[in-house]
Structures are given as structure tokens and as C-alpha cells.
């Protein structure tokens, strides 16, 4: 499972999430979704610290965030 998952068909390409990620790993994809927006995405999943800043700032509830369970 991904650390940070984007429901791309909901994304309106506003770029707010890219501006608040402390690791600067949220980027806009070249592809378009059905609404005609370039969706946000994270390729470098291993760099995600699961802080949820992107998800908390997303106005469209696009993003789900997970983290490893502590043993």
C-alpha cells in the first residue's frame, strides 16, 4: 500500500498540496483527469513522512495518508 494515495479523478489541480509538503515530493502529473486537470501525485513514496499536511490542506479530500504500524 502507498504511504500517500491520490484519488486523481477528484483532483482539481489547485497545487495547494505541493506548496505545503515539507519534503517537497508532491508534484503535478503531466496526464489529465476526466475533469481536465493535471492531478497531483507523489512518486517518491519512500520519502513521505506521513505528516498529512497535503491532505489537511486539500479542499477536495483527494488524499489518503498511511504509515507503518509501530511494532
Amino acid at each position: 500500500m502507498l504511504n500517500v494515495e491520490f484519488d486523481e479523478e477528484r483532483c482539481k489541480g489547485c497545487e495547494i498540496c505541493t506548496s505545503v509538503c515539507p519534503k517537497n515530493i508532491v508534484v503535478m502529473a503531466d496526464r489529465l483527469n476526466a475533469m481536465g486537470y493535471h492531478p497531483a501525485t507523489v512518486i517518491e513514496q519512500e520519502k513521505c513522512i506521513s505528516c498529512s499536511f497535503c491532505a489537511r490542506m486539500c479542499p477536495d479530500v483527494v488524499i489518503t495518508v498511511r504509515k507503518e504500524e509501530r511494532k
Partner: peptide, 8 residues
């Protein structure tokens, strides 16, 4: 994995 943020 545990979910830390999802749609309410």
C-alpha cells in the same frame, strides 16, 4: 499500515 488521514 495504518491510515492516518482519510475522508470523514
Amino acid at each position: 499500515m495504518i491510515t492516518v488521514f482519510e475522508r470523514p
